[in-house]
């Protein structure tokens, strides 16, 4: 699993790679690691799936994708894994997570759909619902209104040496 250098490395690049000719060398300098070790460690983390993807992270709101729906579903527990896997393959689904139910909150599967406008998002949701035969399943659609804060993950790793 992750050793201390991996954790420091991930913490140091979670806000982005430097925009310079040799970004891995620069990160290495900050951490006291050779450039090749930075590259090898990141390649390993990538292969292990701890890095889900690496590249340009776009801000969909600024790019015109203003409608953002979080759809929550009450899927029978025995089916949630299958349905979750199927749901995540739709190109317009941007996240798909199982989460715990609460009293008065029976929903256990969450997916996110980002679109240009509500109509588009609702049409995509209808397509998803029909294709996966989920018309009889209770769900709620929560469109976002204001964004009060949005930033990349910021682990502080306070118990690590800086």
């Amino acid at each position: 699993m992750l050793d201390n250098s991996d954790r420091r490395l991930l913490a140091s690049i979670q806000q982005g790679l430097p925009l310079c000719s040799r970004p891995y060398a620069e990160i290495g300098q900050r951490l006291g690691l050779p450039e090749t070790e930075v590259i090898n460690r990141l390649s390993a983390l990538n292969q292990q799936g701890l890095i889900k993807r690496m590249g340009v992270i776009v801000k969909h709101r600024s790019l015109g994708y203003q409608a953002n729906a979080m759809v929550v579903w009450n899927i029978p527990d025995a089916e949630v894994t299958t349905v979750g896997q199927q749901m995540s393959t739709f190109p317009f689904v941007n996240l798909c997570y199982q989460r715990p139910r609460h009293p008065d909150w029976p929903y256990n599967l969450y997916c996110m759909i980002h679109g240009k406008d509500r109509e588009t998002v609702l049409t995509q949701l209808e397509q998803l619902t029909q294709t996966l035969n989920l018309t009889h399943i209770a769900k709620t659609v929560l469109f976002s209104r204001r964004c009060f804060k949005q930033q990349g993950a910021r682990y502080r790793l306070t118990h690590q040496e800086s």
């Binding site: 992750l2 979670q14 890095i51 690496m54 590249g55 340009v56």
Partner: peptide, 29 residues
């Protein structure tokens, strides 16, 4: 490429060039 990425970042069209880290592997959320 570097100047174009810097422009996209300054215009808030990208948040960064970097990794999406699998949740709950470093730290908890």
């Amino acid at each position: 490429v570097l100047s174009a990425l810097t422009e996209l970042s300054q215009q808030q069209l990208i948040s960064r060039v970097g990794p999406i880290i699998r949740p709950n592997h470093i730290g908890v959320s």
